[in-house]
Simulated assay, not measured.
Amino acid sequence: MFSLNFDISEFLTQYWQKKPILIKNAFPNFEDLISADELAGLACEEAVASRVVVTKPDDWQIIEGPFEDYEQFGEKNWQLLVQALNHWHPDSAEFINAFRFIPDWRFDDLMVSFATPGGGVGAHIDNYDVFIIQGEGQRHWTVGDKGQYAPKNNDPTTPLIEGFEPIIDVVLEKGDLLYIPPGFPHQGQTLTLAMSYSIGFRAPSQQELFSEMADALIDTNTGLKRFTSSDEPKIASQISSSHQQDLMALITELAANPEYYQAMLGKMLSQNRFELDICEPEEAYTAEDMSDYVAQGAQLYRIGGLKLLKLEDDSISRIFVNGEAIEYSAAIETEVQQLCERFTFDNQQTAMLIQTPATQALILDLLNRGYFYFGE
């Protein structure tokens, strides 16, 4: 069981998306979620997103995985980064659970780093919130204040910057946590062989929301209302201010109507950036199969990284799963809420869930889509 050793309410009020904070011993008696050898093995898999960052004099080289061996990199000045560990390593679920004081739709992934002395990625700025938790070893972190910073080598496309004046300067040790909101420059440098974990939270940009809205309108053949006017400008070549405002009001009208945006948001925010380890069965489960598994003591598990989301005040009883909307009977709202809130169900809990035919049918659908599975 992982429990955070700080006041979550105070954190949300004073620090979340406002300013960085260092919390020493945030996870008392912390133990690494995965060994360095296991992490290296995961990075051999084609489906797993991984990369090695090699530190060079005043520069960095990024090599994309998968990797067959690591001897070429030597004993220092490099680090292995594996994205979405929670998709492939079931034991990380409890660790993720400790951060669910932030809603699931914001959660991006759990990235893990194995770093050799001197390994790092240089001073940079991210556009997402990140919690960095130190495992074995030590890393030196500096964090600067928000401001205008020159891009590295005058490259406007890079998140790397030339440098900053630190407002936090610390060596992280096992169980320490460093929270960094978007826009704050930071840099980590490895002092000893080290494992560290980054919990990332993202939110869509205006550009992404507009793009998703446009796609949704095209897919559903909606949003067909056209501009009409009550007056015309006296100058033929002029687009009057009132026409400009009325044209943009067509977009505002769509954005204010849940009928147009709710399904779009649910589908968009339930998707993952990284591949899921979907467990679609070779043969479809039946209700009888489910009962047999439960009778034999099986437990029910959600695959790692899967988001089950519900929209508050939704006009339809539905959940959004991996970019899909799945409707259900309003009579099983309590059971559906349990499915959304929990990652695992023990045998007794599973037996209770499948007693209701409508809940049984929903779970059967999720099993056959490969989103849930039975285990010991």
Rank of each mutant, 00 (worst) to 15 (best):
I23P: 03
P103E: 07
A43K: 00
F73H: 07
A40R: 12
Y260M: 11
Y260C: 07
N86H: 14
S329I: 06
I363D: 06
T334R: 15
Q245N: 12
E275K: 14
V130Q: 06
F164I: 06
N86I: 01
K307C: 04
H89M: 13
A150L: 15
Q348I: 07
H140G: 00
L309M: 01
P182M: 06
E71A: 13
D32L: 06
Q206W: 09
G200W: 03
R302V: 08
Q72M: 13
A249F: 04
V54N: 09
S50F: 04
S242F: 10
D129Y: 00
A40K: 15
I303Y: 05
F6E: 07
G323K: 08
F99E: 04
D129C: 11
S315L: 13
A256R: 11
Q138C: 12
E46A: 11
L39N: 06
A351H: 09
G122Q: 05
L80Y: 00
F227R: 01
Y197V: 05
T344A: 14
E333P: 00
G323H: 07
Q61S: 13
Q72H: 10
A98D: 01
F101A: 02
T158G: 07
S92W: 01
A325F: 11
G119C: 06
Q349V: 05
I23F: 08
K234S: 14
M268A: 02
I132G: 03
F99D: 03
N257L: 10
R342T: 02
T116A: 11
F6N: 08
T220Q: 09
V48C: 04
D126V: 05
A295L: 01
K18I: 07
W105I: 01
L311T: 09
I180F: 01
A263W: 11
K146E: 09
V294S: 06
H243T: 14
Q61K: 13
